[in-house]
Design a protein around this nucleic acid. Structure first.
Lengths: 257, 257
DNA sequence: CCCAATTTGTTCGTATGTATC
DNA sequence: AGATACATACGAACAAATTGG
């Protein structure tokens, strides 16, 4: 195990932070993956020559970053853990808590990424995957009757995009589509958007997604790209009428589409 | 201050985690912004009725997320803090530590976002901003003579994109351009790409960026979009020849473009 | 320059909770 | 049920850093 180097860099790190960094680079150096068990608390105390509290704080830091998880009892200990989607989403969401992120900002990103996703998936989806997408769509084939139902349908339609992203083999693209969809769905939950049902958003969205599925099945990448681009432009126009600024709030970690 | 609700949800949270969440929603409820001071350690111990270690671990969790910073001494304490770019980048970088993110994955995102950025900035930059971009370019007007210099130039050219992104008023777009550029620059540092100077990447990149600046100054959005798209496609083609998979490593927090 | 007050940072000893055998 | 191996939590004391007199 590499020693804790007391670096004299711009910002002096507290001891727990030093220990956390040391453990991180130790894991990296040894190539340990998810499931690998770190030395026990007692071991770490002995190895680092520090008190229990200090070591525990270090572990808490790693845990907050989603890199480790600890279990009590025999066979327990601290284990390397793959950062979960929910954790990564929540952590990045924190970053935007203090920045004014508008619906337009989110749609500018979606308008750029979603068509690319559609194009890259054309002809690559199995019948089962296409069926799963249709299944999600079934939640909003019927027009919403009240605001509450409309809200639920909007979230379901966002889930359509999140599911579509799952089929991409680009982890960054997957994450970003999910992240933007999660942020948008968070708005509809926190603010009571949709004072009255928005039939136009519903019917046009459904039509676009149907045409999209056909293009995907037929392997027509450029058609899929164009349909999705229109879908985004249309949704952006309709959403813009509703509200403009996101509510300031921390994303609860549970909510991922 | 709201009480710590012992939620019986799927995953039971440890006490420090509960406290951290309680403080978070407390900050949110009171609308406290960066600079606001949380109650002192002693206060928190009294309010939560918990031991010092427990409270400290909670604060460490928030600190790891970049949400607070603490200072010692009189006038010190724990302060609400805006999550920094570097912290957000490092935290999201952790997420991709265990996922195989390829250069192609990064370029698929860049190819979608950078042209959109260019288009949205056309005609909106001041002469000073255009000059700053030219200043960055000056670091690589001269062909690199060895691998080391080539590496430095490549990073400088990534900084060109990061700086361009700073001029966008879309915080998410800013972040994503910076993030992808940082990830790419991290490769050139960790792996010794560029066994020999790559004159083609150098000269073509410089030419594209020059044409881009002209389009931006002239306010020709669609031209800027097209030039950037070609720039990305070209760079992706040339990079693909070099290496395909990112090295597994945690992003050091300092390195942000 | 030193001293005192304030606040976080660290240590140690002990006790409790929890899961496994 | 009981013993074991672990993390979790508590409390009191001490150390270090910062500010102001």
């Amino acid at each position: 195990m590499p020693p804790v180097t007391t670096r004299s860099t711009p910002e002096r790190l507290s001891r727990p932070q030093q220990v956390a960094e040391a453990i991180k680079s130790w894991v990296m150096a040894n190539g340990w993956g998810p499931g690998a068990r770190l030395p026990s608390e007692a071991d770490l105390i002995a190895r680092f020559g520090m008190a229990k509290g200090t070591i525990r704080e270090a572990i808490r830091i790693l845990e907050a970053q989603g890199l480790v998880k600890s279990r009590t009892g025999p066979g327990g200990g601290v284990f390397v853990h793959q950062v979960s989607d929910a954790r990564a989403t929540a952590l990045l969401g924190n970053y935007f808590y203090f920045q004014q992120l508008t619906i337009d900002d989110l749609y500018q990103i979606r308008a750029a990424l979603e068509p690319e996703l559609a194009a890259s998936l054309a002809g690559k989806l199995t019948e089962g995957e296409l069926a799963a997408l249709k299944e999600v769509m079934s939640a909003y084939v019927r027009p919403a009757e009240d605001a509450e139902e409309e809200r639920a349908q909007h979230i379901a339609s966002l889930r359509f995009h999140a599911l579509l992203a799952e089929f991409s083999d680009n982890p960054l693209l997957r994450f970003l589509i999910r992240f933007t969809a999660t942020m948008l769905s968070d708005i509809t939950v926190s603010r009571r958007l949709y004072a009255q049902p928005n039939h136009e958003l519903w019917s046009s969205g459904l039509a676009y997604q149907s045409r999209l599925l056909e293009a995907l099945r037929a392997g027509e990448g450029e058609t899929a790209r164009r349909v999705m681009a229109e879908h985004m432009a249309n949704a952006q126009r309709l959403m813009r009428l509703q509200e403009s600024v996101l509510t300031q709030r921390f994303l609860p970690e549970g909510r991922v589409l």
